[in-house]
């Protein structure tokens, strides 16, 4: 942490607030029936994408997790989250041209693909990392997955392959203790997912996923290893989702409502609140600055909404031209 300047710390806080505001925008627009697709809120998860992606270089490869449909990761990497809402409204200015409503792609920033079948993230990111290694320019791939992804076979095939070949990939597992409606305690034989890393002879660490500084520090270490050629690592960030699995869905554990006490307990450790408290205590954040950042993020979200609403839909005649690349 010592290498973080006050400016760096404020920047992390700023990114958390921007992420939350954009997520809230998507959630509101989903409730208004304006999103033309589904949405999986990132509220509660923000520190992970923001903290870990803030250590990436522009040319590093990134595979975002479905939470927030990419918002925490692109904001963390310093990109503009504007195309997110456009995509969800099915507009041509979206990340994926409004074709799928959800997928992110931004070649310039090292985002090549996103998939809907979780678990693929593991093997595709191994492929990006293979390319990074072949390039020989010190690039790394950072890939975000949920606890549910680790339950698929791809996770294990990819960890084994990447560890054998010392691929420069960092897998960040956002363990929110629940895959859809099924809690981890009923679907994992292990208490800590990070322990699986040992089986593949790679480092695995449990991190407090609500603490943006802890995530950033761990990510920095893992990225350094990958850049040096020491191969893959796994970071298990313990976190909690504050909203249902996806908007408009029942918020249940198995088939019964999630415990309100549990949600309230975790909200005390809201990543934005934790970060703010710490920086106020360190006298880095002032009331004025907090208000300023809040206002700026509100303005940015408004701009994003306006941009999305005013953007055109893609011309359906392009669909047929996209099935095959020229």
């Amino acid at each position: 942490m010592s290498n973080l300047t006050n400016t760096d710390k404020i920047e992390l806080y700023r990114k958390l607030v921007h992420t939350r505001k954009h997520d809230e925008l998507n959630v509101r627009m989903a409730s208004e029936g304006k999103l033309r697709t589904f949405y999986h809120s990132a509220q509660g998860h923000e520190a992970i994408g923001v903290g870990a992606c803030s250590v990436l270089h522009k040319d590093d490869y990134l595979y975002p997790h479905l939470r927030g449909h990419g918002i925490p990761y692109v904001v963390g990497k310093g990109m503009d989250p504007k195309p997110s809402v456009s995509e969800h409204l099915g507009k041509a200015t979206g990340w994926g041209g409004g074709i799928t409503g959800v997928h992110i792609v931004d070649k310039e920033n090292g985002i090549f693909a996103q998939g809907g079948t979780i678990g693929s993230a593991f093997v595709l990111s191994a492929g990006f990392a293979l390319a990074a290694k072949k390039n020989g320019t010190g690039q790394v791939c950072m890939c975000f997955v949920g606890d549910g992804s680790v339950q698929r076979g791809q996770a294990h095939e990819a960890m084994n392959l990447a560890s054998c070949w010392k691929l420069p990939v960092v897998w960040v597992v956002e363990n929110n203790l629940m895959a859809w409606f099924t809690p981890c305690c009923d679907s994992f034989a292990l208490k800590n997912i990070a322990d699986m890393a040992k089986s593949y002879n790679m480092p695995g660490k449990v991190i407090d996923g609500m603490d943006v500084f802890a995530v950033r520090e761990a990510a920095e270490e893992a990225v350094d290893l990958a850049r040096k050629g020491d191969g893959p690592s796994m970071l298990e960030c313990k976190t909690y989702r504050f909203r249902p699995h996806s908007e408009g869905r029942p918020d249940v554990c198995h088939y019964l409502p999630r415990s309100e006490e549990e949600i309230a307990e975790w909200k005390k450790r809201d990543p934005l609140v934790l970060c703010q408290k710490k920086l106020v205590k360190e006298k880095i954040l002032t009331k004025n600055l907090i208000d300023e950042i809040e206002l700026e993020a509100d303005e940015k979200a408004k701009e994003t909404e306006k941009f999305a609403l005013e953007s055109p839909y893609p011309d359906p005649s392009i669909l047929n031209t996209l099935v095959y690349a020229p």
Partner: peptide
């Protein structure tokens, strides 16, 4: 062996790595 790569018996990983590397310019 850098260009003729014997992989583990993991079709998903082999195919996924193929797609990933292809997206990244190979």
């Amino acid at each position: 062996p850098e260009r003729v790569m014997d992989a583990p018996l993991s079709e998903l990983a082999i195919a996924g790595a193929t797609v990933g590397a292809a997206c990244a310019g190979y």
